[in-house]
Design a protein around this nucleic acid. Structure first.
Lengths: 120, 120
DNA sequence: TTGATACTAAAGCTATTGCCTAAGCATTCG
DNA sequence: CGAATGCTTAGGCAATAGCTTTAGTATCAA
């Protein structure tokens, strides 16, 4: 089935957009876009337990949005901007497809003579 | 609490990214970015029942990504590109924040004399 | 008016998500 | 060594997501 093709390629976008759909995870990314941080610093402003923060971190890592590394007892997290641009590309493609279509439609309407138009 | 502020403003992004996180919904948007379509045409390529498609459509409408209008017995759907650009903005902001930071860091390291550097 | 078309509404079922607490490592500090 | 720090594991629990089937309602076509 044709859908199989789509679904396979899109698993990556699934996890990307899913990761971005939670305010706690976006807050973590916002913090990390200003520089790397240990887990406990990501957790500090969030109104939830540390295990919950770890789960969110797991979702971000799984989506490829964050890379982490443990040194001693501290796990340091850093954003992975390439993953973000995947999502950006998809969104941008949809927007421009739509806008190009409108442009073509407008240009086409321009070519019509007034009595051929359908814009009553 | 500071988080309240963030969470209130971000409910919009929540529903936006959540809507984008499903392959069926993205397929619907891809179709709609090439022009408006009735529900049944959105449903045709999808491997699920019509009620399921309607639910996905509800999610897209709720996120402001799609506007629909019923005429006779046909409901016509159209994409709403403004909603998409909200999401695009957030992602772009994170990417540029991170890249600007790296630029500043690089510039700072340039100003250091060789024996002050920490790049062993 | 009868039948087909295009949705819509209702209810239910399973899996996933997002949270929690409690307990368990390792490291580092005193 | 013993205690504090920073994460990690395990388990459980309520809410939501995504799907289904069944049974409508409203148009439109013949």
């Amino acid at each position: 089935m044709i859908l199989r093709h789509m679904l396979n390629q899109q698993t990556e976008l699934d996890s990307l957009f899913h990761a971005l759909s939670d305010p706690a995870r976006r807050a973590m990314l916002e913090r990390l876009s200003r520089g790397p941080a240990p887990v406990s610093e990501l957790a500090r402003p969030l109104p939830m337990s540390l295990p919950s923060v770890m789960q969110h971190l797991g979702v971000l890592e799984n989506a490829g949005l964050v890379r982490t590394q443990k040194v001693g007892r501290v796990r340091t997290c850093a954003i992975e901007p390439q993953a973000l641009s995947q999502a950006e590309k998809w969104i941008h493609a949809r927007r421009t497809e739509w806008e190009d279509r409108l442009d073509r439609l407008g240009a086409y309407l321009e070519t019509l003579k007034p009595d051929e138009r359908d814009d009553t």
